[in-house]
Computed example of a mutant assay.
Amino acid sequence: MVERSTAVSIRDVAERAGVALGTVSNVLNRPQKVAEPTRKRVLDAIDELGFVRNDAARQLRAGLSRTLGLIVLDVANPFFTDVSRGVEDRAAEEGLSVLLGNSDESESRESAHLDLFEQQRVRGLLISPLGDVSARLGRLRRRGTPIVLVDRPAGDNPYSSVWVDDVAGGRMATEHLLQTGRRRIAFVGGPATIRQVADRRIGAEQAVGGSGAALEIIETDGLIVETGRKIGHELVARRPQDRPDAIFAANDMVAIGLMQSLALLEHRLVPDEIAMIGYDDIDFAAASVIPLSSIRQPSELIGRTAVELMLRELDAIESGVEVDHEQVVFQPELVIRASTDASAESADTAR
Rank of each mutant, 00 (worst) to 15 (best):
V150N: 00
R143H: 13
S65M: 07
T145S: 03
G181D: 08
A249Y: 01
R171M: 10
R90Y: 11
R61Y: 13
A135L: 09
V98A: 09
P332V: 07
I256L: 15
R4L: 13
Q32H: 15
P298W: 03
R182L: 04
Q179S: 15
A250V: 07
M1F: 10
A342R: 11
I10L: 12
I71R: 02
A263I: 00
F187C: 02
W163A: 13
F248C: 05
Q241E: 15
S343T: 13
T227C: 08
A306C: 02
T81R: 07
E313K: 06
V208Q: 11
L137V: 03
K33T: 13
D348L: 13
A344G: 09
V42S: 04
S211P: 05
G22L: 07
R39Y: 09
M253P: 01
M253R: 11
S128M: 09
A237E: 03
R85S: 10
A92H: 12
N102W: 03
V208T: 06
N157G: 12
L60N: 02
A213K: 04
S128V: 00
I185D: 07
L73D: 04
L292S: 01
R16N: 00
L314F: 10
L215V: 06
A350S: 15
T227V: 15
P271A: 03
R337P: 04
Q59H: 13
L116C: 12
A286S: 06
A20G: 14
I194F: 12
A347L: 10
K33C: 02
F284R: 11
A186K: 01
L309C: 00
A186V: 03
D89Y: 11
L264G: 13
R16T: 07
V52F: 05
V52A: 11
V42N: 05
P244W: 10
M276L: 15
G203D: 03
V236S: 12
G278W: 03
G50M: 08
R30D: 09
T145W: 04
H267I: 02
D132C: 01
D283S: 14
L149I: 10
D221S: 11
L64T: 12
I224V: 13
E216V: 13
P37L: 09
G22C: 02
A45R: 01
R53S: 15
P153E: 12
S9D: 05
G320V: 05
L265T: 14
G50F: 08
